[in-house]
């Protein structure tokens, strides 16, 4: 009973946030609603006793990805009026495409795959059971090859991104911290001893 209230709370929040992401006008608000959507999904996963995935979702997507997302979106100057041009003109054909997509999705993952008969709630694990340990074991034994392949693909993506934006070695005269920290007093200050001059 208590669990059901929490479940419906998170589920409603996720649906509401998801709808707001695509309907709200301001892109920063949309990004923040996406954060809320991630959070609600994390709550739902937590109720499935998948605590590692739930917290990793918050940690990776909310804590890192969305921060950078917001960072970019806040600096963009998006003109909503231009984006909305031709909304009415394309509405009919867009509606047809959307309906077809919706039908296709409904056919592939239809209601017959859902409900408590199709997917009964998992049996509660023992208190000593550690979700993190179980995922780690599977990831590094049964699925080690796909896991490593995914890591290499991500590395390729990083290298590609750097290669696209790299502008050659730095030519500017900006200070180099690695040389700055090696400066010693003798390099900068020369103490000179002079005899006091006598007034003539």
């Amino acid at each position: 009973m208590f669990q059901q209230i929490i479940f419906y709370w998170f589920a409603l929040a996720a649906i509401f946030a998801g709808a707001m992401v695509i309907t709200v006008r301001n892109p920063v608000h949309a990004a923040l609603f996406l954060v809320l959507a991630f959070f609600s999904s994390a709550g739902l996963w937590l109720m499935l006793e998948a605590e590692f995935l739930a917290i990793a979702l918050v940690l990776v997507y909310v804590g890192a990805v969305m921060v950078l997302f917001l960072f970019v979106v806040m600096m963009l100057d998006i003109n909503i009026a231009v984006l909305r041009e031709g909304f009415a003109r394309y509405l009919p054909i867009a509606a047809v495409v959307a309906l077809m997509m919706f039908g296709a999705i409904g056919y592939v993952v239809g209601p017959r795959y859902f409900g408590l008969d199709a997917a009964p709630s998992p049996a509660p694990a023992a208190a000593s059971y550690s979700n993190t340990e179980a995922i780690g074991k599977v990831l590094y034994t049964d699925y080690v090859l796909p896991f490593e392949a995914a890591a290499v693909i991500l590395l390729v993506a990083i290298v590609a991104a750097i290669a696209l934006t790299h502008r050659g070695t730095r030519q500017s005269k900006a200070p180099r911290p690695e040389r700055q920290v090696q400066v010693r007093r003798a390099d900068r200050v020369r103490l000179i001893k002079m005899d006091a001059e006598r007034g003539g």
């Binding site: 923040l32 605590e51 917290i55 990793a56 909310v62 804590g63 890192a64 921060v67 979700n131 993190t132």
Partner: peptide, 25 residues
């Protein structure tokens, strides 16, 4: 006394930045 305490701490400490970003914007 949760099992994923360390992860929970990491996740929460990454959320503090939202207050600052949202305030600034």
């Amino acid at each position: 006394k949760i099992n994923a305490g360390l992860l929970y701490i990491l996740a929460l400490s990454s959320l503090g930045v939202y207050g600052i970003i949202i305030a600034g914007w």
